[in-house]
Amino acid sequence: MAQQLPLDELSTVIARIQGLLLTEEKVTTAVRLLAQAAKESVPGTIGAGVSLLDARGRRTSSGYTDSIVRQADSTQYECGEGPCLAAWAAEEPVLVKDLANESRWPEWRKAVAGLPITSVVSAPLMAGRETLGALKLYAATPGVYDETSVRLLQLFAAPAATLLAHIQASEAPQRMTEGLQASLYSRDVVNRACGALMERFGIPHEAALQRLIKLARDENAALQHVSERVLAGTLPAGS
């Protein structure tokens, strides 16, 4: 069972990404710092990496926290397969709970058999309709990551992708675009609303998030709007 990222840590990560855009000028520096932030934010992770890819799936820039990530990623590029490339190509997250029970990417699995990698989760970095690359986490023991880890990585990847797209467009950004501000704000609101529901009902983060999603579906409203109502205390008492 994967551990869950504390809500205050997720808020810190979002704030850190926001600060990066205001202080960092180079894509290479940004991807390295994003990788480090991801590693520190998801419990059980032994290494994290950010890969930016071109339209043919070729690496254009990368940042990693540990040599094991560099080895695992380089092998993916050499083999032309692996969870990072799969997340990029399919534009959806890839979860590997136990590499020993995995049947996908036979060449890559054979190549990394000597590395202490057992669990993997990777999410595409999507800015609008463009997929810039992928963010990935590696763990040494099975079962470190689950569906909750996927959702947490997606919360991290979305503003990170917007940041990277912004930096790529301008090597010396001076201010955040309105789109990035909205992206950061929306995820922070959802995060804080989950915390409010956890405290109100004594439920774990996963249950709180599912409750928010159900409320949004029932009301045919955006998740951000429902989260704002939770924080404002304007939802029915049983919600």
Rank of each mutant, 00 (worst) to 15 (best):
L155N: 09
G63C: 05
W108I: 00
A134Q: 01
W88M: 11
R58Y: 08
Q154P: 00
L163G: 00
R58W: 02
A100R: 08
I17A: 01
R229A: 12
E102H: 10
S119T: 00
V96C: 06
L152A: 06
P6R: 15
G195R: 13
Y145E: 04
S239Y: 08
S149T: 15
A111V: 01
G143N: 06
E130K: 09
V230R: 05
P6S: 10
A140I: 01
H205I: 04
A111S: 07
A37L: 13
T45N: 12
A208I: 11
Q210G: 08
L52N: 04
T23Y: 05
P106W: 00
A134K: 00
A134W: 02
T131V: 15
S183F: 03
A86F: 01
V13R: 08
T177D: 00
T234M: 05
D54I: 03
K136W: 08
H166C: 09
V121P: 05
L52I: 06
A157D: 03
S227N: 13
E228N: 10
Y64F: 13
L125A: 09
I167C: 07
S74M: 02
P116N: 10
K97N: 02
S62R: 14
L33A: 06
N220S: 15
Q76F: 04
P116D: 05
L22P: 06
G143D: 01
E107F: 00
A113N: 01
A221K: 14
E40N: 11
A208C: 14
S103C: 04
Q4K: 09
V13T: 12
T131I: 05
Y64G: 02
A127G: 10
L52Q: 01
A140L: 09
W105T: 05
R192E: 12
A208N: 15
T118G: 00
G49D: 13
P159K: 12
T148L: 06
C194H: 02
G63E: 02
G128T: 08
S11Q: 04
V94Y: 09
W105G: 04
N191I: 06
L85G: 07
I46T: 13
G195S: 11
T141K: 07
A55T: 13
R70F: 10
E178D: 12
V13W: 11
R211M: 11
V112P: 00
L135V: 05
T75R: 12
P116H: 08
I46S: 06
L153G: 07
E199Q: 13
S74Q: 09
Y77S: 06
W88Q: 12
T60W: 03
I213H: 13
L235H: 04
L197C: 08
E178H: 12
E178C: 08
V226L: 15
A35F: 08
N101D: 06
T60K: 10
W108F: 09
W88L: 06
D98H: 01
Q181F: 12
S183P: 06
E91V: 13
K26L: 12
G44R: 10
M176H: 08
S119F: 00
V150G: 02
L137Q: 04
V226H: 15
P6F: 13
L10R: 14
L33M: 07
E199V: 13
A160I: 07
L231I: 01
K214A: 14
